[in-house]
Design a protein around this nucleic acid. Structure first.
Lengths: 341, 341
DNA sequence: CTGAAAGCGCTTACAG
DNA sequence: CTGAAAGCGCTTACAG
């Protein structure tokens, strides 16, 4: 005798009436509805999700999968928390909850996704850090679960995605450096097969070409997306006979390790080496010199992700009639002191 | 016709037999068990969690609540991701899943907890960033849900907790600075009523007293736990007529803003002002000068959190016979260059 | 406007 | 060793 049964007994009505009153169904007298709502609030009643899910066939929850093991997961600074906030703002409008699903380090991400959707823990999913070939997409597509990816992938599908403008950032960074007179411009990209690395590198190559500069493989540095990776980048740069005069980073925290390594060699960012970082974060503003980078609103990105996901779910398609969203998220240049050289 | 029913029909057995086979019940012939397991794997069957939860009365999931809105939440995802990993390592041994529950910015945390447990989304909870008075604890206690807090609180209860050694860190930092000759030592604590601030400040006061130094209120700086807060701290320090020679931080990222602000005034950490940070992270190692701080293994902390939580759940108490854990988590000093002054 | 009843997908005593 | 059946807590056609 718990839950709705107990509540119904207290009020001397049937459980059906309680359910209808609480779910805002029209065919309940206003008086009864008020009594039920008051009693529910008083005893802190909320419907058991298992019972509701089983009956309705949905969970009213959206899952956001993150990976704990990878570089990209572990070093994301404040990226995800900001995005979660925005996603939730969208979901809250529809009384949906966001549940974050952290894939264990030692579990295969694809298997994890499979397990979560087979258990019907969530109605829809958001996956991030897409790889060039990403089998999670295959699993989600085959399961016919609504999903959106934060990041493009070469794995085909008709799913929606939103991705940061890696291409545009790389191009504008190169253009800006060329305009300032730089001719030997290095680039740092991830050492794993996360898709954004390929896009960033393409943007870099295209920008070089557009500026009449030749692409030199020795100026491409593949380093882990972490402060340590930045340190390694600095180390490699310092060891070069013919050091480039500028470097474009694909991840903002690389700057921290890079700055440190340059300092150890008596070099100053912005004077001895122009640096353009990636995403603006608290770190970029408080480094000395401040980091030239690109701004975006994580919350707005999260809001858009949530909306694009809902747009792909038939039940919400009329509220968000945008169809299948595939969108490059713009980022705005924030000039700093690090590329004055 | 889905799920277990479909599977049973394919195999020409009853759904009861399928369930028993998959759940490792003894009274199933080995031959049948193998056939069922093979078929389940082939069609990617996993029991619908709603059906299972409803019947069993549990969810096999543990919730870890984080707050997106607060300073403490927003600036800590490197902290949490490491802890999640450890918690999951413990839970995985028992086929329990970790589900992260991010409380929306605009929802009251206590109400959020109430809603999550009333819905029976998880069997047990971990809450973090405990406040001095924390009504979430009251709600969880009243609901008789097993839970553990990452952080102590003045709110009473018989629940387990694990907390970082804020007291010990503050004392050792002061002792170390005094040993190096410092007499005017400032401290930075959070500007909100998160409990760790009170503990840290107490440790600082006690250490001053133990070293025969008097406590001066003007040397206590209440700043937000963020890079910006560190910048503000630097600003306040630079404005003082009689500047302290050292400062102890309660949050590692304060160092970043502090370094920047000192730099703007032509001051160098470790020369003009000794700085001892809090938790060792990638940032502390790559700052110039490197930050003297304190080390802990986030994964081990997470493992211990998971174990202590399970120890408080009757069904697991025999595996983890440690009773109600209330434990101060030790942190190890990592000398850096920032307190050489 | 309200109640009685079916049924969502499971697990588990209970028969046989 | 296996099947038939009850029942977990809900929601929702269906009667009245």
């Amino acid at each position: 005798m718990t839950g709705i049964k107990f509540l119904a007994q207290q009020l001397n009505v049937s459980i059906g009436t309680v359910s209808r009153a609480l779910n805002g169904k029209p065919d309940v007298s206003e008086d009864t509805r008020q009594r039920v709502i008051a009693a529910a609030a008083a005893m802190g009643y909320a419907p058991n999700q298992a019972g509701r899910s089983l009956r309705r066939g949905n969970t009213n929850a959206v899952g956001f999968m993150i990976e704990l093991g990878s570089d990209t997961g572990r070093n994301n600074d404040n990226f995800f928390l900001g995005v979660f906030d925005g996603v939730q703002a969208t979901l809250a409008r529809h009384h949906l909850d966001l549940i974050v699903l952290p894939c264990p380090t030692d579990e295969d991400p694809t298997q994890y996704v499979q397990r979560m959707i087979a258990r019907r823990l969530v109605d829809a999913m958001i996956i991030s850090a897409t790889h060039r070939k990403d089998t999670r997409i295959d699993v989600l597509r085959d399961a016919r679960i609504p999903f959106i990816t934060l990041g493009r992938s070469a794995t085909p599908g008709t799913h929606p995605w939103i991705d940061l403008d890696f291409d545009g950032v790389a191009r504008r960074a190169v253009d800006r450096l060329v305009a300032a007179g730089h001719r030997r411009i290095a680039v740092a990209v991830p050492s794993n097969d996360i898709n954004l690395g390929f896009i960033f590198l393409d943007g870099y190559r295209n920008a070089l070409a557009a500026n009449g500069l030749s692409f030199e493989p020795e100026l491409v540095f593949r380093v882990p997306s972490s402060e340590q990776g930045g340190y390694q980048l600095g180390h490699d740069l310092c060891a070069m006979a013919n050091r480039p005069s500028a470097v474009v980073l694909n991840y903002e925290l690389l700057a921290l390790g890079l700055y440190r390594r340059l300092d150890e060699s008596g070099l100053t960012p912005g004077i001895d080496l122009a640096v353009i970082g990636f995403r603006e974060g608290p770190v970029s503003r408080f480094l000395s010199p401040t980091l030239t980078c690109f701004r975006l609103s994580l919350r707005d990105l999260g809001i858009a992700l949530g909306e694009a996901l809902l747009a792909s779910i038939p039940a919400y398609a009329d509220v968000y009639p945008q169809g299948i969203v595939r969108r490059i998220w713009p980022m705005e240049l924030v000039p700093g002191e690090s590329d004055r050289a």
